[in-house]
């Protein structure tokens, strides 16, 4: 996004703002442990977890804010939160 004069902007949609940079911790998904139950996708307040073709669940890092709810709720402890270096 180029800077508009005086931080001005045309109307758009929320996804135009890539909010993933707010994150401090990043969820790491362990597919060995994952049972593909879909709880993480249901619980993610960002709605940023998508099911991939092989039915595993993957967060979109452009929007994941690292809240950790997916890791907290995952019944198989397949998600760990790791501090992200920027």
């Amino acid at each position: 996004m180029a800077l508009g004069i005086g931080c001005s902007s045309r109307p758009g949609k929320a996804p135009n703002n890539k909010t993933g940079s707010w994150r401090v911790f990043k969820p790491k998904f362990n597919h060995e442990k994952c049972t593909k139950c879909g709880m993480c996708k249901t619980i993610c307040p960002e709605g940023c977890i998508e099911e991939s073709e092989d039915e595993f669940f993957i967060p979109n890092e452009s929007y994941c804010k690292g809240c950790g709810l997916c890791a907290e709720e995952c019944p198989s402890d397949a998600i760990t939160m790791e501090q992200e270096e920027k």
Partner: peptide, 15 residues
């Protein structure tokens, strides 16, 4: 329509 004085995240404020 435009909006002015939008919210600037740390990636933009300095600029």
């Amino acid at each position: 329509p435009i909006s002015m004085g939008m919210y600037a995240t740390p990636e933009y404020y300095l600029e």
